[in-house]
Design a protein around this nucleic acid. Structure first.
Lengths: 357, 357
DNA sequence: AACAACTCTCGAATCGATTCGATCGATTCG
DNA sequence: CGAATCGATCGAATCGATTCGAGAGTTGTT
């Protein structure tokens, strides 16, 4: 690299392109393209010539980037998760959903680009070459990004998000389901009830669930579930966890169970949190369900929770993901899929019982 | 859509492009480009004019697909996982690694395209517009894909894979670490030892670990760990699990512990498998560690394993991922990062003890 | 006043492929 | 035997931006 620029730069063996292959094969670029894509009549001999030339030049096939531009499709679907990956993937419910998504996308030969909400230093959401986007439990903070998607004509599907114009919703009965669980608890005679919620803010701050925080929050699912609980226990409140983890449920449980008139029932917004609460109870010698009833959400199987069969709301996570993936595929094919809503089912286990007197 | 093709097709309001914006702003396309990218001197007034025109036309900014082609970069890094996502993400060790990867990639504004091995109906590995690829614990089945990557000049980093030319290796001391664990077991006086391995084949078939299967396998990590165990217990064998799951460890454990002269120590290839083995022991009233010693691999924290502190090989998963991500970034910047190797550390817990006599 | 230096803008080439319509021979049909 | 048909191939336009070198206009120096 230190010699002067000579008139003829060293061959530098640039990567071959379709034109080079075509030239070597003695055909036009259009024919060579046809030979690779198979979209058009090409004689067997010509195709063979082209492939031979490609081999000779060490050509790997049409450049995906150029194809993207020309076809206006990159074959990539963005999946935007609210949390840091490390948090999101720790909850089996998210994995199940992602699995559903990837299943459907894979069938349609679409790649899955993992993205996290902006402000976290990740990729600028609007800069990636995506054909469509799936928003997973995202806050309304994404408004700006959604506007860009709309401008670009990129279809957007949102799983459990605040309804937005031009965004196809895949919803879950968060509110109603929680209300059903709450009614179950009330029928058992509980009156002192507390919540353990998922994070309310992007900062994932722990702490008491205050009216201000609640009002300021943009976390749709969390608020819906709180509302559901309030339908049955109007003034109910509780604490906010910083992630859906057993460890976090433990911390929340300790806080709730340390007070003098501790609750007799705790409604947690995920099974992991619920399990943590149970651990906190065990620590203090509080028996579940005799002294404390605990309700979860999700209906995932958790290793190590063998002693209990959690009373929880079983949600169809994989189906949810699958519906989102399916919707994306239909949208990309020009169809107009209908929004869908999924129902959770209250599964009564052995972690809820009549209130102690 | 049913009317005849008229001479003048309806305006159809095509999405605006940079040229349209430039025209409206009364500047050239090149100037408009500069105004957006900021890579060149543009007067404030001109920039304002361009941005105003963009707003008026509802232009969302330069098309990422076109940028990819022109720049020769898409900003996307593929991460190829061996398993179905549902399996891969169930093991915290993989999540941790992915977290390390995404951390480094995010810092460099690179997107993370999740891919699975071919033959699973997913995206054709060589068809996605990627700038680089990370292979995670992949079998040598990927040879063909790697060839294509090389032809395309796409750098490849492989985590715990069979060494391949032109592929940067991020390695773990699987063999040596397992040997160390095995020595620990031998020092405790164990002689009847069995293995519970991770899947040997892409089919993820369960069953006995036979010499034939082993020889035919392309699962590098699994074989290395087996070899490590053999350094200490030359003829040792065992059973193959179909995934890294507690449930699978349970199945494997049942099989191993049902035989008349059951092993006094079991070396499992993951902590999840080890925990499953312990559960199998509990089922049969076999005490750990008094009657049975169990060793794991990974050093992950597992919910529900509180009763035991697993003797295991703690591996730096996040660091491994981070190293891979870092290497990718360097490679894309034209650097030549060195391959790296990570060491696992034997952490002795309370699941191993002197062999029963 | 002439020249250098600097700032801003533009034209044209380029990235690598796809695709539509036209062309050209060869075959088939009436 | 002329015309219609069909298959194979090619040319040229297009996708949407980036970038290099050149040119125009302005300011500063001696």
């Amino acid at each position: 690299m230190q010699d002067e620029a000579t008139s003829a730069p060293p061959p530098a063996r640039a990567r071959p392109n379709l034109a080079a292959v075509a030239a070597l094969a003695g055909v036009s670029a259009s024919t060579a393209s046809l030979a690779f894509s198979g979209a058009g009549p090409v004689s067997a001999t010509t195709r063979a010539k082209v492939l031979a030339a490609a081999e000779q030049l060490n050509y790997a096939g049409p450049d995906p980037r150029a194809q993207s531009l020309r076809r206006g499709r990159s074959g990539i679907v963005g999946v935007v998760m609210e949390d840091r990956l490390r948090d999101a993937f720790r909850d089996p419910v998210n994995i199940a959903m992602l699995d559903g998504i990837s299943d459907e996308l894979g069938t349609a030969s679409l790649g899955l680009l993992l993205l996290t909400e902006p402000g976290q230093g990740g990729v600028d959401l609007s800069i990636a070459p995506m054909d469509a986007v799936i928003l997973v439990g995202c806050s309304t903070q994404l408004d700006k990004a959604v506007v860009v998607f709309r401008q670009r004509g990129i279809p957007v599907v949102a799983i459990e998000a605040e309804p937005m114009p031009d965004v196809l919703a895949i919803d879950l009965d968060n509110r109603d389901a929680t209300a059903r669980a709450a009614r179950h608890v009330r029928q058992l005679g509980h009156e002192r009830v507390a919540l353990v919620t998922l994070p309310l803010e992007p900062s994932h701050a722990r702490g008491v669930l205050t009216a201000e925080r609640e009002a300021a929050s943009t976390a749709y699912t969390v608020r819906e579930r709180i509302r559901g609980a309030r339908e049955v226990f109007p003034g109910v409140t509780g604490v906010v966890a910083s992630a859906s983890l057993v460890e976090e449920g433990l911390i929340a449980g300790r806080e709730l169970l340390s007070s003098a008139d501790r609750p007799t029932a705790i409604i947690a917004q995920s099974d992991l949190l619920a399990l943590g609460v149970i651990r906190a109870a065990e620590e203090r010698g509080i028996r579940v369900p005799q002294d404390l009833s605990v309700v979860g959400f999700d209906g995932v199987r958790i290793e190590g929770a063998d002693a209990y069969e959690l009373t929880t709301l079983v949600q169809p996570s994989v189906a949810k993901g699958r519906a989102a993936g399916r919707a994306i595929v239909e949208l990309l094919e020009g169809g107009t899929p209908a929004p869908s809503g999924f129902r959770s089912e209250l599964r009564i286990g052995n972690t809820t019982a009549a209130a102690p007197r």
